[in-house]
Computed example of a mutant assay.
Amino acid sequence: MALCLANSLIARRHFNPYDQLVRYKWWYKNGYMTSTGRCFDIGENTSQSFDEFQRRQESLAKDHQIPLEQLDFLSDYHLLANFNVDCSKIGAAGNGALMRLAPVPLFFHKWPIHAVEFSGRSGQITHGDPKAYDACRYYGALIVATLRGESKEQLLDNEFYVKHKPWFNGKRLHTDIEAIAKGAYKQRQGYDGGIRGNGYIVNTLQAALWAFWADENNFEKGVLAAVNLGDDTDTTAAIYGQLAGVYYGFKKLPENWRDQVYAKDFIKCV
């Protein structure tokens, strides 16, 4: 899904949630941009959102007499402006909103306010809980700060949110996310200290940041720490990898891991 999001940003040259949902639907239904040719793992909240998006597309086609085969390629500004892209159920707070995030702050990092807001919106279209929106905003801000040269100490500063408050454009973080921003993830005992990498976005955000905090400045150690928490291991590691990958850089990733990455040439080009 991260590749779908990156493709959308490049193709549309801006943040276009309708186009993002189209590409996610292709991934879900047809295996677009997958490593296996099919979608083999998708959360309930995410799949429900894509099914709802398709229902809304079909309703749009009926109301405006649009051929179904044209629905994925709409360019009419007024039609798209009136299309409700928030396809999530109320209260959906799964971690799928966060695991695909990185292309947004990468694309908009020169404009932090836009980067942070669009990070939140990128998650909100499939996960409607305010905690999902704010988890994505906060993590997007961390990635932007990394790209702008801030040190690891600055990124993990318990006052990071306060010091970057203008980036959040007057919208306060949910208290659960603000607690993480203030350092709730800094648990030396890790799993025994209550860190959990499960499907709930608040817990996964905390777990990914714990892995970054505890990785001894080594990407491989951080990934293994994230995975060894158990539960939703691939998602926790993927979320860790977005921030840590930007911070450590391509050359510091294990070479044997880099060689196995799907679409690595495309990613390098992007």
Rank of each mutant, 00 (worst) to 15 (best):
G249C: 08
G128M: 09
R148C: 02
K268E: 06
N82S: 11
W111F: 09
K165S: 15
K251F: 12
V223P: 02
D19M: 12
H64R: 10
P112M: 11
Y247W: 10
A81V: 03
P105C: 00
F160Y: 06
A61D: 05
Y185P: 01
W257P: 01
P130L: 14
H14W: 10
C4T: 12
Y139C: 05
H109K: 06
L60P: 05
N203S: 00
K251E: 14
I195L: 03
H109V: 02
E150Q: 15
D265H: 09
G149H: 12
P67N: 09
Q206F: 10
K152Y: 11
Q57M: 13
S151M: 08
G149N: 06
I201S: 06
R56G: 08
D51A: 10
L74C: 11
P112C: 11
N203I: 03
A244E: 03
G31V: 04
I66A: 12
F50D: 04
L3I: 11
K152F: 09
V144R: 06
D259I: 00
D72L: 06
L106M: 10
I177S: 12
S8D: 11
F212E: 02
F15P: 02
I90T: 11
N7F: 14
F53Q: 01
E52I: 03
P166S: 10
S8I: 10
K251L: 10
G170Q: 07
A11N: 15
Q48Y: 13
Y133A: 01
G37I: 04
P130R: 12
N169M: 06
K110H: 13
Y262C: 02
H127E: 03
R12D: 13
C39G: 01
F40T: 08
F118R: 05
C87Y: 09
K252E: 03
H14I: 00
E52A: 13
